[in-house]
Each structure stands twice: as C-alpha cells, then as structure tokens.
Design a protein around this nucleic acid. Structure first.
Lengths: 210, 210
DNA sequence: GATATATTCCCCCTCTGCGGGTGATTTGCA
DNA sequence: TGCAAATCACCCGCAGAGGGGGAATATATC
C-alpha cells in the first residue's frame, strides 16, 4: 500500500538500539513513514536523496563526519528537507552552530517518544521545536545585561562602532559633532578598561552590554 | 487556606474579558494561584511588588506604557520574576526586543488554555516556552545564508573585521601576512559591491553571510 | 592530468581615522 | 541644588584604511 500523504522521515543515528527504536516508534504512528535509517552520514549520503525524506532526525555524535558537519552537506543535497537535531549534548556552541547551519529544531534525547513525533509534525507546520532547556539557552542569548556601566548614548555609539562605522559617520548619523563622539568613546574605553575598538566591542559583547 | 507552594501568577492585560478569563483558568488549576491582575503597567507598578508573583503574563499592546517598555521596568523592580509575553503580534522586532529585555517566553494569544498553564510551569522549571511560529522565527535568526558568494576564508576575515579588529591584528591571529588580509578584503569589497568596512558588514549581515 | 578556484604574498599610492590628554558648557532628573 | 549625562573644543602623533596592479601555490573537482 502506497502512503504518499504520510510524512516521510529518515533517521541518522549510530546507536542501533536507539535508531531502530525511533524507526519502530515513528513507523507505527499514523501519518508517518520511515523511508530510511542510516548509522552514519557516509551511509546516508549514498541513499538519502532517492529516499527523499521530508524530515531527517540527525544525531550530532556520529562516527566519521559529525552530525554538525553533516548538516550543511545534507541541506545542500536536500534543500527542502527539514532537519531535526536529536542529541544528548547541550553545549551552546553546538546548538548555535546547528541552528546556523539550518537545523529546524533541537531536541535532547530524554525527549519522550510522543514529543518527538509531535516535533516532527510541528516542523512540517512551520514550527521550531526545541527542548525546554535549549529554548531557554536560545532566548538567553538575546538577553542584554541590564546592569551596564554604559549610559544610553554610550551604548548607542558603541553599537554603531560595532557595525564598522567611522566616528565621522556616526557623528553625522546621530546629528552630533565628531568631538562629541570622540568624547563618548573615550568614556566608553575608560569604563570598559580597554584601549581599542576591538577590545571595547569584545568586552561589551562578552558582558552583553550590546 | 494558605497555599505557599503554589506558583504565584500575575496578569497584566488591558482587555477585561481576556484578563479575567486567564485569571479564572489559572486560578482554578491545581498548583497555581493568581496574586494580581492589572489592566496596565501603571496599575501594576503600584501593587505588583507586594503581590510578589513568580511569573507575570504580560500583554504587549497596553494603554499608556506598552508591554515592551514595561518589561525592563518590571525586571528592575522584580528581578527574579519570570515574564511571559502573551500577544497577538508576531513582528520580529517586537519579539527580539522582548527577549532582549529579559522575557522568559513568548506566546501568541491563540495558544490553548492548557498550553498557557504548561508554559508557566515550563518557565519555573528553567524552560523557554514559545509558540511554534515564534520559535521558528527565533531559530531562523541564527541561520546563515548557504549561497554566499564569499569563500570560507573571506567569510572568516569579514567576521574578524566585524569584531572591530585591525587588518594587522587579523593577519597576526590568522598567521598570514597583512598583504594577504588586504587582498581578501579587496575581493570581499568587489563581491559585495561596497567600498568600506561598514558597508561590507551591513551587506553581509543583511544577507546573512556572517 | 588538466582546469578552476581559493589562498597566499608582493609592490605601489593617498589620506583619513584612531587613541589619548584636558577642559568647558548645557541639559535633565532627583 | 546638585550630579550625571550629553554636548563641544583644541591639542598631539601614529597607524590604519582603501584602491591600483600583479603573481605564486595549494586544493579541489572533473
């Protein structure tokens, strides 16, 4: 029986128990069909294009090419396929690299079975499923530090500097004198204990002042 | 009967029907207690500190001071209170301003009642609840443009420039000659059709090349 | 093995920008 | 009525930015 209205799912996961567990779970859910399971990216690369999944569940810790490195390659050969990261790792760097490479969602492996199926559905509907802790980390990455030593104007000027603009251009765009901008920058440097643009930007970003 | 183990919730929402609806819903859920409902930030400011909620449901479209502007003020007077945005608006600018000001989550008003209660619980557990579409927008904000005209090295160097570093410093940190950095920058400027640092950074960020 | 493409380095040129010192005025909020 | 914030001024020396041209190695990809 052909089931073309089903959501076609592929799984890339090296642990056979987990891989077959997911395959069983998803394959036995109404509306879902597992079109391929692969223990590594190298294996997936051979068959995944003709298996043509709608959604890929991708592990990050894979033998050979890691899931993180596999992600952009998969997006290249299957541009319209949604990729859901499924991992035990919660390191910020991995998360943001994955999302930057085009992951549609990021789930941890303690996610209960029904939530994984729900996440696949959510991805198809244009959502971005994330585990609770991951979502908080992502949200936190936007949060400014409210206890900045910089005044509003100083913050504004440092933001402009961070876009690469010259002092002269900043002065023009803020309708103030070049000397005023210089004065603000001197105060910024003193407050942040730095002596250059680059160090000021770094200090401010590290402390989420900008 | 005192119920100190309950999660204390406050609601700031100008529409009385919606406000009382939420209050009724949450107040009648085991484990939750509504400690205050206010039609505006100005009203909330008078009583919310002594009401001392664990979680605030905050509307963005409020009369007087908007929810977005109220958020940093609320964080200031109640630093440990989690704030959940509840709104009909899905504009990127509002979302990122809210998250930048310290919102713990962002829900749209079509969120079913049980999900709202679940979101309050999730926030208390360190999660970051978001409506599906919001989550996708947040994730998309991290996504790089895979069809960049820049090479890997050019992208790397442009990223360094965007941190405010001088060409000389970039050369030292990448262990290449200053002339090489200059050469890359010339190529970057040609590819992006710009003639300055600031314009290159802007063009690259607009197109998500960096 | 041939052909692109990426990466590396070299020379020339002008001129603007950057970092730092010191001090003064006006504006707004508590 | 203060104090912090924001504004503008003039000093100095040095490094950096932008643009012209050319050319030698990797490194893929076919």
């Amino acid at each position: 029986m052909k089931r073309d209205l089903d959501i076609h799912v592929a799984i890339i996961e090296d642990d056979e128990t987990i891989r077959e567990g997911y395959a069983f779970l998803i394959g036995n859910t109404e509306g879902y069909k597992v079109v391929g399971t692969y223990p590594s990216y190298e294996d997936a690369a051979k068959r995944i294009v003709k298996d043509n999944p709608d959604v890929i569940l991708l592990d990050v810790e894979l033998p050979g090419i890691s899931g993180i490195d596999a992600l952009p390659k998969l997006k290249k050969i299957l541009p319209d396929t949604h990729i859901l990261i499924l991992t035990v790792y919660e390191q910020e760097m991995l998360i943001f690299r994955a999302l930057g490479s085009g992951a549609a969602g990021y789930l941890t492996k303690n996610t209960p079975a029904d939530k994984i199926v729900a996440a696949i559905h959510e991805v198809m509907e244009g959502g971005g499923p994330m585990s609770a802790h991951i979502a908080r980390m992502v949200i936190s990455s936007f949060k400014r530090n409210e206890s900045t030593p910089l005044t509003r104007r100083e913050t504004e000027i440092l933001e402009q500097i961070a876009t690469g603009k010259s002092r002269k251009r900043i002065a023009e765009e803020l309708f103030i004198d070049l000397e005023t901008v210089k004065s603000h920058i001197k105060n910024i440097y003193h407050k942040l204990n730095v002596h250059s643009k680059a160090d000021a930007i770094k200090a401010a970003k590290d402390n989420k002042f900008i």
